[in-house]
């Protein structure tokens, strides 16, 4: 029975667990976050993301021509139309742009592939948990 010797060997090994964000769950997550912000506590770093990781979406609104291809391929209907008033010379023109609900996004990056103007890209940000699915940081404009 190989486990008999194995367990004693492992006992003296460093635990495999990655201690993210802290070794033990903090009593209050909010308190922990506040302490981290105040510099009183430190977050144990997460496992680094590899290059070309598919994280939170970035949107460069100025490059967008409003073709709507991303809306057509988005599997989760996370991208919707929105109209933006842009000043063009004297008069204001309504331009079609999009709005992305990150809390609906499934991070497939299909919209990034289809975008003809390359105005969408995936960042490596993945700490997106929030109590409010419509929080400002979860809507990309």
């Amino acid at each position: 029975m190989p486990a008999i010797t194995e367990v004693w060997k492992v006992l003296f090994k460093r635990p495999f667990t990655n201690r993210f964000p802290a070794k033990y769950a903090p009593r209050s997550v909010h308190g922990f976050v506040r302490r981290v912000q105040a510099g009183k506590a430190k977050i144990a770093p997460p496992v680094p993301t590899p290059p070309n990781f598919r994280g939170k979406i970035n949107y460069e609104v100025d490059k967008c021509i409003g073709c709507g291809l991303c809306i057509r391929v988005c599997p989760t209907k996370a991208i919707v139309w929105r109209t933006v008033e842009v000043e063009q010379g004297e008069k204001k023109v309504a331009k079609k742009k999009v709005k992305i609900f990150v809390s609906r996004c499934c991070f497939c990056s299909q919209c990034v592939d289809i975008c003809p103007k390359d105005c969408l890209s995936m960042s490596d940000e993945f700490l997106l948990a929030n109590e409010d699915k419509l929080a400002n940081e979860l809507i990309v404009l």
């Binding site: 194995e6 367990v7 495999f16 993301t49 590899p50 990781f53 598919r54 497939c108």
Partner: peptide, 30 residues
């Protein structure tokens, strides 16, 4: 036999990291 459970899942991390490196995500590979 939780010990084997924890060992195999720890060993599985390596292929998960490789999958993440190749496809951009651990689980839904897209």
């Amino acid at each position: 036999f939780d010990t084997v459970f924890h060992y195999t899942w720890a060993l599985r991390e390596e292929i998960m990291d490789a999958i993440e490196y190749v496809t951009g995500n651990r689980v839904t590979k897209g």
